[in-house]
Write a protein that binds this DNA or RNA. Structure first.
Lengths: 152, 152
DNA sequence: GCGAATCATCGTCATATCCCGATGATAACG
DNA sequence: CGTTATCATCGGGATATGACGATGATTCGC
């Protein structure tokens, strides 16, 4: 991963090894893998405010520069960030606004599991669809509205 | 992971090591990690039709039984499946209907990246929200409806 | 022109991960 | 009761991963 991102490359061979998997699962595997590291989640959060240089991210994360470069390479390979060299600096920015829906959906899954998790920065949080169940059963406070909504 | 799921346990220590991460990120990391393996995605797909025994999954996946047990332990630790021992068999079932929204959202991200990926079984696919952009700009066929919708 | 800054890459290390076969506890079957 | 089936767990192997420091190419600032 840190060198060459071989594990995140779409790998039809590994996909064909396990029955029931699909070649296209590799892209999904790479996407989920890119999100399965705390440093990379933190990078995404930092980039949500706008593009940043590697040295900025390095300072904020408190990791070695080479490590940050590796994480950015992983995110880049998964298509979540883009790199814009500018002189001796390289600016990285997020590329997929759809990512916020994904993070919000993960919040929902974890919320249902009892983990109050906030992955989406507030200004990127997609609107939750209106609950289909009429209000009446207060199960848990809604993360977005902080009020009690019917859940199910 | 295969023994003890130490890597998927919420680990506040690792979370505190990288600046900008949150302790609660561990649950998200574990969730994304649980989805970042082709065999586990296949298991989720198999279980989408209803609960199954380990031996059934083992047969369908073509993996060693111990491997399948390990994957199920991972999914279980992430809260995505539940185990119901019944005699000498153990039935596994999915626990989070919210998971379909997450997989659909991942499809969207990958779709935007140019990878036509189907993670959601058809009978579990959540309804896509109506596009906010009026029809007019045909960019890419909609996975669900197969017709051309405005994208942006 | 020189020193400093930046960053992708490499090598190394400790640990994790997925794979397998083996094993033992438990339950089912004849 | 003896045999078979099932499954969680363990040990080992091959590989991957995230961490670090070092390095060299490129750019910037004086």
């Amino acid at each position: 991963m840190i060198r060459g991102e071989s594990a995140t490359e779409p790998d039809a061979l590994a996909g064909a090894r396990v029955e029931g998997t699909r070649d296209t699962d590799s892209a999904a595997v790479a996407l989920f893998h890119s999100l399965s590291d705390p440093a990379r989640l933190a990078i995404i959060r930092l980039l949500s405010d706008g593009e940043r240089r590697v040295v900025d991210l390095t300072g904020e994360l408190g990791l070695a520069q080479s490590t940050v470069s590796g994480h950015l390479a992983c995110l880049r390979s998964a298509g979540l960030v883009d790199a814009h060299p500018h002189g001796r600096s390289t600016y990285y920015a997020l590329t997929r606004p759809e990512l916020w829906e994904l993070l919000a959906a993960a919040e929902t899954v974890l919320d249902a599991a009892g983990s109050a998790v906030t992955l989406c920065p507030e200004h990127h949080r997609p609107q939750r669809p209106e609950p289909l169940v009429p209000c009446g059963v207060a199960v848990r406070g809604c993360l977005l509205h902080g009020a009690h909504h019917g859940r199910h």
